[in-house]
């Protein structure tokens, strides 16, 4: 029979992993869309007021820039939420998975060439994320949820609790 503490640990890992996946997805999508939008707009002719204003107006008219901005906001929201319970020294390296995911997606979906050096990097990141992911997500005493007005101290309901371990 798994103990209550064990279940609680599993639940914590599950919701931490879910939030980190959201960070990786929204962060990568945001960077890609923002990059695409900005490249289409092009840099300002000079770094003086008028060209910069023109650049900002053009960027604000780009759908990709807005979608990128929205993705990055969702990334930051996931980041803020996961940090209410998980260690900073756990979340940051674990979220580096995006550096491994982006070349993999590029290779398998866009047929991009990945150099041997990059493959080595992807392998090291995957190993590192796996190692960090196997440590306890939280090593500091938790502030009781009751001290926040997020919700009364109900046990983690709905969305996040469904995920698997790491």
């Amino acid at each position: 029979m798994p103990s209550g503490q064990h279940l609680r640990g599993q639940q914590l890992r599950g919701k931490t992993a879910t939030m980190i996946v959201l960070m990786v997805v929204f962060g990568s999508a945001g960077d890609t869309l923002m990059g695409k939008g900005m490249r289409a707009v092009g840099p300002p002719a000079t770094w003086s007021l008028a060209p910069v204003v023109t650049f900002l107006v053009q960027a604000a008219g780009s759908r990709a820039v807005w979608m990128g901005f929205a993705s990055l906001l969702l990334f930051f929201l996931s980041y803020m939420l996961v940090l209410t319970w998980a260690d900073f020294s756990y979340v940051l390296p674990a979220s580096a998975a995006s550096f491994a995911v982006v070349p993999l997606l590029g290779h398998f979906f866009l047929g991009e060439e990945v150099s041997p050096v990059r493959w080595a990097g992807v392998t090291l990141i995957a190993l590192g994320v796996w190692l960090v992911g196997n440590t306890q997500p939280r090593t500091t005493p938790s502030t009781p949820p009751g001290t926040t007005d997020a919700e009364p101290a109900s046990e983690a309901p709905v969305t996040a609790a469904s995920a698997k371990g790491d």
Binding site: S89, A96, G121, T123, L124, G128, V129, L131, V132, T135
Partner: peptide, 19 residues
Amino acid sequence: NRWLGVCLVCAGVALVWAG
């Protein structure tokens, strides 16, 4: 373990950027 993981991520990110 976390230190080792962090160091591997650090080296891996450097290689992905450099490659």
